[in-house]
Simulated scan of single mutants.
Amino acid sequence: MTLSHDVAGDGPVVVLLHSGVCDRRMWDAQWQTLIDAGYRLVRCDLRGFGGTPAPDRPHSDAEDVLELLNGLGIAQAVLVGSSYGGEVALEIAARWPDRVSAMVLLCSALPGHEPSLELGVLGEREEALLEAGDIAGATELMVDTWLGPDADDTAREAVRQMQRHAFEVQLAAAEEFEPLEAHIDLTAIVARCLAVSGRHDVADFRQIAARLPDLLANAHHVELPWAGHLPSLERPSDVADLLIEFLRQAVPVD
């Protein structure tokens, strides 16, 4: 399957991977700014999100992304992943280290992470609402949970639209297929990594970001005191500045 995607710009390649409550539109506010800074951008919708159909068989999101990059003739890229997109980035960097020049992980998930009680209860509430046919209620639960205090009405509406669309696409599928679980070796990752957490995020993701410097050979952690789980939507220009600062050090534009 070819993932629905956008490609634009010239220069070192940066791949933007969305969170599990959004789709590739979550990067709208950073898109042109990063292009203007001299980078070639790729953003895609994983299966069941945005413009990509729900999966009809067992699949690997990491392999889907790699297939997309192969089709575009991209040998190496910086991966920028938000939440679940960060988990996908980590899998790619562990399985194919030579394909990843650097990573920025925004409030990233982690392969094999055991969810806390808080996260487990949230999942149960979401599932109960969806089983009851209350898509609107499940959507609002996600909006209220994942956006921090600095998110404005525009950010809330963006997440609302992306999450509701994902629910509708996934619930309409004939059968549900979760991504295949890959057992990866994080010590295989050699790419430079910036792990970002938000002080107002769920504890699981704050703890993951803080652990990554101990798990990866070349990782640095920074916490954003104003952020929830989706900083690129909460303070778009601040995150664009953060990304450009990191990219200029990791993959300078000629």
Score class of each variant (00 low, 15 high):
193 C>M: 03
111 P>C: 01
158 A>P: 04
120 G>R: 11
157 E>C: 01
191 A>N: 03
197 S>H: 12
138 A>V: 10
148 G>T: 00
180 L>R: 04
171 L>T: 12
119 L>R: 05
122 L>T: 05
167 F>Y: 12
143 V>W: 01
136 A>L: 12
144 D>H: 06
164 R>I: 05
206 R>N: 03
130 L>E: 15
177 F>D: 05
134 D>G: 11
186 L>I: 04
217 A>S: 11
130 L>S: 08
213 P>K: 02
185 D>S: 15
120 G>P: 04
142 M>P: 01
171 L>D: 12
119 L>S: 05
126 E>R: 15
124 E>D: 12
110 L>H: 08
105 L>W: 10
146 W>F: 15
144 D>L: 09
208 I>V: 10
101 S>F: 07
146 W>H: 07
174 A>E: 15
164 R>Q: 14
117 L>Q: 07
142 M>E: 05
103 M>S: 07
190 V>R: 13
220 H>K: 13
139 T>F: 11
111 P>H: 00
161 Q>F: 04
99 R>W: 06
161 Q>M: 11
134 D>L: 10
190 V>L: 11
130 L>A: 11
171 L>G: 07
194 L>M: 01
143 V>G: 02
179 P>N: 04
147 L>A: 10
202 V>Q: 07
114 E>Q: 14
120 G>C: 04
214 D>C: 04
110 L>T: 04
180 L>F: 00
111 P>I: 00
107 C>T: 10
103 M>H: 11
220 H>P: 02
219 A>G: 05
211 R>D: 13
189 I>E: 01
165 H>A: 13
166 A>K: 02
122 L>C: 04
123 G>R: 14
174 A>V: 08
140 E>R: 13
177 F>V: 10
106 L>V: 10
140 E>D: 09
102 A>Y: 06
150 D>S: 09
199 R>D: 13
101 S>M: 07
163 Q>C: 10
181 E>R: 09
149 P>W: 05
114 E>Y: 08
191 A>M: 02
220 H>R: 15
124 E>T: 14
162 M>T: 09
125 R>W: 03
104 V>K: 08
105 L>V: 13
215 L>R: 03
179 P>M: 06
220 H>S: 09
155 A>S: 07
204 D>V: 07
175 E>N: 07
160 R>W: 13
208 I>R: 02
220 H>V: 13
221 H>D: 06
189 I>S: 03
124 E>M: 15
136 A>H: 12
221 H>A: 11
149 P>I: 08
187 T>A: 15
128 A>H: 04
131 E>N: 09
179 P>I: 05
164 R>M: 12
178 E>A: 14
168 E>H: 08
99 R>F: 06
103 M>L: 12
167 F>D: 09
125 R>Y: 07
168 E>N: 07
119 L>P: 01
149 P>S: 07
165 H>S: 14
157 E>W: 01
197 S>P: 14
163 Q>M: 10
154 T>G: 14
170 Q>C: 06
171 L>K: 14
186 L>Q: 02
165 H>W: 12
216 L>W: 01
214 D>A: 13
111 P>W: 00
113 H>R: 14
158 A>E: 07
105 L>K: 14
116 S>C: 11
157 E>M: 04
185 D>L: 10
200 H>M: 03
183 H>D: 08
121 V>R: 15
171 L>Y: 13
167 F>K: 01
107 C>M: 08
200 H>P: 01
131 E>G: 06
